[in-house]
Design a protein around this nucleic acid. Structure first.
Length: 285
DNA sequence: ACTCGTGTTAGCTG
DNA sequence: TCAGCTAACACGAG
């Protein structure tokens, strides 16, 4: 799951529970998740530092890091991407009991980011842990990612992303939609055009705006573009508020036999912009 | 067994 | 050179 709303939830979790904790060790040995870094490279760069700020643009997160010890020179930026199935789990500091760390009691609560829906992973399940920051206080920040399409990397390129979908202005949106022949859904999914719209949010916004996902961007009238801009921002904001991209009005109807929640027409299914797409053939024109 | 997929990107094509 | 498209990635879920 993650689209922008789930990533924002993960960012907020890091902000709430992951900042200012000294990094004592790092498990960066998953060569898929940490590509193109080699095992030990991220560990070497981060041990002794702490995360200081958690940022997000679209579906990409990145954290600033502190200097080591008393050094004021900041460390590298830690980029985090949840891919298609990633989650962030942050566990609290452990309180050392009189007989040592073995009988610690947790202080505070485990904080999660990413898709909030329940899943099958058993408590204590670690096989999907792809990257871990072990804090000096005994807690940790873990990136879980069954599908291994997430990415952890130092100093990620953020400037290649388009404006964030939550805050994109209508002027920026017009520029993005002004050129080319791509289907409008494909353009919405292009992270260098607009950052943060994934497959579900794209279907939801196009349905809200009553625009056929196949329409070439150049064929959109100015009123279509302004309507779509509003629909994108509203759909993303509502999904952030409600807890995920799956909360959209049309999303639960994206299945064989599913009908348009407004007019009852059976939704059509196809591939647009390389992704599975559902739309109302009567209203989306 | 087999298909699908809420993301990204290298590589191909016109 | 560039926009657009496809396959591949990796692996769980139905």
């Amino acid at each position: 799951m993650p689209e922008l709303p789930e990533v924002e939830r993960a960012r907020a979790a890091i902000e709430a529970a992951g900042l200012g904790r000294r990094i004592a060790d790092v498990d960066d040995t998953d060569t898929y998740e940490c590509r193109p870094h080699t095992p030990g490279e991220i560990r070497q760069a981060l041990v002794g530092r702490a995360l200081t700020v958690a940022h997000r643009r679209g579906k990409t997160m990145w954290c600033d890091t502190s200097g080591v010890g008393r050094s004021r020179t900041p460390g590298p930026v830690l980029g985090l991407h949840l891919g298609m199935a990633g989650r962030i789990v942050i566990s609290p500091a452990r309180v050392r009991g009189p007989s040592g760390p073995a009988d610690e009691a947790a202080s505070g609560e485990t904080v999660e980011g990413g898709d909030p829906r329940p899943r099958r992973a058993l408590p204590g399940e670690t096989r999907w842990n792809r990257f871990t920051l072990f804090f000096a206080d005994g807690g940790s920040l873990v990136l879980l990612d069954p599908r291994r399409l997430g990415r952890v990397r130092l100093d990620p390129a953020v400037d290649v992303l388009g404006p964030d979908a939550l805050t994109v202005t209508v002027a920026q949106f017009r520029v993005v939609m002004a050129r080319g022949t791509a289907p409008v859904k494909g353009r919405l999914l292009d992270q260098t055009a607009i950052a943060g719209v994934g497959n579900l949010l794209a279907d939801e916004a196009l349905w809200q705006a009553r625009i056929d996902p196949h329409r070439p961007v150049q064929s959109l009238a100015p009123t279509d573009v302004t309507r779509l801009h509003r629909a994108v921002r509203r759909a993303v904001a509502a999904a952030v508020r409600l807890g995920g991209a799956h909360t959209g009005d049309v999303i639960s109807h994206r299945r064989p036999g599913g009908r348009c929640p407004r007019c009852g027409t059976e939704l059509l299914h196809g591939t647009v912009g390389g992704r599975s797409t559902w739309w109302c053939p009567l209203e989306q024109v």
